[in-house]
């Protein structure tokens, strides 16, 4: 089998498991909505305030949802003994990384695609600009790129759920900054030129960390 067919086999396994259990998407989606509701009470909903904090709220919400769903990415493998199955399967570690990464990317994008319109609806914001969609996509790729690596690492430690945020947040700070700044501009109707340098940084982050994670993933899961 070619590289991509093996990768898609692993991704498809995750999609199938998710379609049967609906564990990640449903739970994380509810969590995401709750965070949005809590923000509403924390900051109030006067249009001036919303304009100021909307982009920050959006990315705090997405960063938390990202950590929550990435945390689950390897837990099921570990608990059900599927990890050993993956390890003895005749595929390289890099393929496991790419497959799991694509699965997490898909789940997170679905969650965001549902949460974003609800966010717009609740706060009366116009979120449907191509700029915002590109920002969300690029930042999410960055999240799952390092997130998959750290998730596999965290699941093999004693404190599992606590380890991932501690590792994940400091590393993704640059793209969170970029996402907040660029979304702020996109939400107030900015042009591509206003956000190009942020998209550049986020894009560079994505490429660098996809490559680095791809290369060192094997060291995380060898046992």
């Amino acid at each position: 089998m070619s590289f991509w067919r093996k990768v898609f086999a692993i991704t498809w396994k995750d999609v199938l498991a998710e379609m049967r259990t609906k564990e990640i998407i449903s739970a994380v989606l509810v969590f995401t909505l709750l965070v949005i509701v809590i923000f509403n009470f924390a900051f109030g909903t006067s249009p001036d305030v919303v304009k100021l904090v909307a982009s920050g709220m959006l990315w705090v919400t997405f960063a938390f949802s990202g950590v929550l769903s990435l945390n689950r990415a390897f837990v099921m493998e570990k608990e059900e003994g599927c990890f050993e199955g993956l390890m003895v399967a005749p595929v390289s570690r890099e393929i496991i990384y790419t497959g799991k990464m694509l699965g997490s990317l898909l789940f997170l994008l679905i969650i965001e695609a549902i949460a974003l319109p609800i966010f717009a609806f609740l706060f009366n914001l116009g979120v449907f600009s191509w700029q915002l969609i590109v920002i969300v996509f690029l930042t999410t790729v960055g999240f799952v790129g390092v997130g998959t690596l750290f998730s596999a690492l965290a699941v093999n430690t004693k404190a599992r759920e606590m380890v991932l945020p501690i590792l994940f947040f400091p590393i993704v700070i640059p793209i969170i900054i970029g996402a907040v700044k660029a979304s702020e501009s996109a939400l107030s109707g900015g042009s591509w030129g206003d956000i190009s340098s942020w998209l550049g940084i986020t894009g560079a982050f994505d490429v660098i960390f996809l490559v680095v994670s791809y290369l060192i993933f094997a060291f995380v899961i060898e046992e």
Partner: peptide, 25 residues
């Protein structure tokens, strides 16, 4: 040691991007 090494590598690679984005911020 293995896990820390992974963090050490990823963390160092992150430095230039952190500096760039905090400056641009």
């Amino acid at each position: 040691a293995r896990f820390a090494a992974v963090v050490g590598i990823v963390g160092f690679v992150d430095i230039p991007i952190v500096i760039l984005s905090t400056t641009l911020w």
